[in-house]
Design a protein around this nucleic acid. Structure first.
Lengths: 215, 215, 215, 215
DNA sequence: GATGAATGAGTATTCATTCAT
DNA sequence: GATGAATGAATACTCATTCAT
């Protein structure tokens, strides 16, 4: 059965979105090499030929998929720092963003794809890291650095502190993506992140009174 | 040139080890689907045909590889709990084990393979998780639970505390495996784990009474 | 952008001519199999769909192209014989016709197509041969035969003499079509044909005086 | 049914020859684009996979085929000039070589392939032309030039004379390759070449003195 | 009538697996 | 036991043809 034609530019964009969504599923489940263009096409309810009207090759589809997903996330990450509340507020905000990201799953799925196909697409890993990962960690470490100069935060390498802040989010992402589908106990994201952030606040945030700090 | 025949049982085992090591490299770098039996064979200095004298199929080689690597790790993990020192000692020990694991890279590589091919081998993920991950987390959480009943450790869900304990190790593993080859700043494992464990000690360990500690 | 409708019969014919011209270029450059309908269409400034309003298939377009080009040539060839001048005049006329044909290139291009796709279209080769080649050779051989009975021309198989007359034209056509585009020294058609015809005249034409002929 | 294995280097060469022979047939009949690797393989009584053990791609097979056929011909052509007999002897020798070439058909088939796929492989045309065609024509024109300086041959551009010498051979090749399979009257090569060479001798060869000739 | 989006049969190429040597 | 030549199923990609707009 023939698909309705996408004559309008708008329809074409929609069609492209459908294909990218289907591609995300298939690349995510199978990895680049094992993903079949046929499967991506039929999951998007189009024929193989139509796929090639929108993307000139498997590789181009793959690369564009990564970019489409990754791009909007950059700003979200950056948004967190343009906000001059207290460190505590920022940690709370981070918790919220992290939760959304984990629930939405797009970024975790992307992460899984990147991990899987890092060997075959080293440039992609570089791009993704520079665009998202380095940026996010840099943003976080700047927040911490600023808080440290305010005496709001305890001392310690800001980059390593940012890594420790982020680690449980990565852990949760992998858990959900890799282990839960195979029957693992589900992680309670809310609870885990709350515990994580609470503990961090306890160690990081300097209480105003000098004497309390004197451990 | 023909390879020497592996007449002795011992030689056979050595040959198998070589193949598995080669397979680990190739599966790790390419993923299951993109890995070529030819490459695994030639990296092990044997012919393609010989490969099939030791493993009946690519899939069987893959499965056996996972098991061969995973099995010995189970005991290492379990060893940590058979030791009734203080929580602080145990956290130090964990730090040491974690560092070794990250330096040795076998387990991180296995982790990458599992993540990559989880879609194609769900049973394998289950096995790996039950054998290693669940066991490790359960062990950690038991340590914490015990410490909590000793009043040595603050309250909080022991499983989630174990997850937070483990998270930076996972993070470091992924960083080293995925990002460092593509040019990321290298993680200082020692320093990061030290910071992590120190912070954890600060929040978790209950200082009983000042005088007891001072002995 | 939509093309103007070819409402008038005249427009239709023009459109068809355009398509055939475009098809000639493409079939000539690529051969039947490698020629793309898309390219033929866009070179004719119409859409792929429109092509099918004029020709029901690639094959039909091909066949019709051959016929369209070949047909008018038949009469040109035949025209040469309906002319009762001397053999020398006829050879001069042949030289002129040959030169025009080589300069115009349509027939040489057709020849290249026929050679290339003879395997796939044997009936076409038959048609083309019967319509053009056999006819031309027969015409030539009749001229020669007639001249022989006039004692204007030396003896010898008229068909073979016709073939030898034509051979340098075929040679020149191939040279121009195949070799010149890849950098070969250009043939000087005028000069080559003049030499050819002069030499032929020397051997063929019987000078009036009996004693000179007595070799 | 599996083919016997080519273990010895010699067997491999034989296998390669078989494939090239099959490829010649198929490329000759269909042209490069329409030729199917499957057909080449099955005509050589091997599987498609085996083809790729000997040639890495269709294009490489094509190029190697051209070279394999063309290379040995170069020397044959050159051989004609290393011989300091009279021009008449050389023309007779040429007649003989030309006949052999036409009967053997390998070079005519190659010529047809070159003509057909000249558009897609311009470098190949260049190579073939430089290796064979230019060389042959240059050889012929040198023979003529030398004969002209000996006063053995009449004046005229040696290159054009060489082209006229060669033209009927090209004509015959095309006739046999393209027209005879579709039912054309067969050319009598012997007779046509004899007539051609005789006529050439008449115009070209300068009879020194009547009495010398009369011995 | 004209368009070009959609289709799917057709083809080059790869690679796990077999098995004659 | 070891080898690597042979196989053919599997898969990315192309392009003639159709037909909704």
């Amino acid at each position: 059965m023939k698909m309705k034609r996408a004559i309008q530019q708008q329809d074409k964009e929609t069609r492209k979105k459908n294909i990218l969504q289907s591609a995300l599923d298939v690349f995510f489940n199978k990895g680049f090499k094992a993903a079949k263009m046929d499967e991506i096409a039929s999951n998007a309810n189009i024929s193989k030929g139509t796929l090639y009207l929108y993307f000139s090759s498997k590789e181009q589809l793959f690369v564009e998929l990564i970019q489409q997903i990754a791009s909007p996330k950059v700003n979200q990450v950056e948004a967190m720092v343009n906000n001059d509340s207290t460190l505590e507020d920022k940690l709370n905000l981070f918790k919220q963003h992290a939760k959304n990201m984990l629930v939405d799953q797009q970024l975790p799925k992307l992460m899984k794809i990147i991990i899987s196909d890092s060997g075959a697409f080293p440039e992609l890993v570089t791009t993704y890291r520079e665009m998202i990962v380095d940026r996010a960690l840099k943003t976080m470490s700047q927040i911490i650095k600023r808080a440290q100069s305010n005496k709001e935060c305890r001392q310690g390498d800001p980059i390593e502190l940012a890594q420790l802040l982020v680690a449980p989010v990565i852990f949760s992402a992998i858990w959900r993506i890799v282990f839960e589908p195979s029957g693992a106990t589900k992680i309670n994201i809310d609870s885990l992140l709350a515990l994580h952030i609470n503990m961090l606040k306890q160690v990081l945030i300097v209480k105003d009174r000098v004497d309390e700090d004197a451990i």
